[in-house]
Amino acid sequence: MDEILNSPMTAAIVACEIGFWVFIAAGLLTRYALRKQKASTVLLALVPVVDLVLLVITVIDLTNGAKPNLTHGLAAVYLGFSVVFGPSMVEWADIRFAHRFAGGPPPEKLSGRAKVRKEWLEWGKCVLACAISTALLLLAILFIGDASRTEPLWGWMSLLAKVVGIWFLVGPLWHQIGSSSRKGRARS
């Protein structure tokens, strides 16, 4: 475990996650505190570049003969989720910054059908993120081409399937059932 925690891949993943949020914060602060729209747009456009950097670091690490481990799989999962959820995370933060620093409207609080619809959309994004992550894992497995070295990468696929299942249960299904039961009580 020490070898994984102290690996260059772990450092790269942590650095990219920090970079992701630094570019978002810098972009939004530039937009709302400094009122520099163009500079803000450039900073926010760099958010996906962080994903590209992580992809390049992972490929270089594997090309240089690194033994695939959990962190290489985590890099693929991070990329899949960042690509799918990144834009909505920027939008989420932007709405809150606009409200806090520029007199924008408060974030919308969803309930009822709108909340259920949102949960279904978020679960769909989870499915897409897991599909992208799985595709990246499969590409890495094909790239490595040695079944004895790729076992840690295969393990991520069953974990991703569990994420999809659990998200379904606690997301859209839970809200759908809750919404239906509230409708039933309202009719009584």
Rank of each mutant, 00 (worst) to 15 (best):
F143N: 01
T58I: 09
V22N: 01
D51F: 15
L136E: 00
A25T: 00
P48A: 13
R96I: 10
T63G: 14
T41D: 15
A45C: 07
L110T: 04
S82G: 09
S40E: 04
A45L: 10
T71N: 15
R31H: 09
L138Y: 01
L142N: 10
G73E: 07
R31G: 08
L28Q: 09
A129K: 14
E119T: 08
A39H: 06
A98W: 11
L142K: 08
L139G: 12
P107H: 09
W120Q: 07
V84M: 15
Y32P: 01
G112E: 07
S88V: 05
L74P: 03
Y32A: 07
I60L: 14
L34M: 15
L43Q: 00
L138W: 06
V42F: 14
D146P: 03
V77D: 01
I132F: 10
F101M: 12
T134S: 02
G80S: 12
Q37A: 15
F81Q: 01
L62I: 00
T134F: 01
I95G: 08
Y78R: 04
G65T: 00
Q37E: 06
A102V: 14
G65R: 04
A33H: 15
I144K: 14
L54E: 02
A33T: 10
T30P: 07
L139D: 11
R96A: 08
L70G: 11
A45K: 05
H72I: 00
W123D: 14
V83L: 15
C126D: 11
L121G: 08
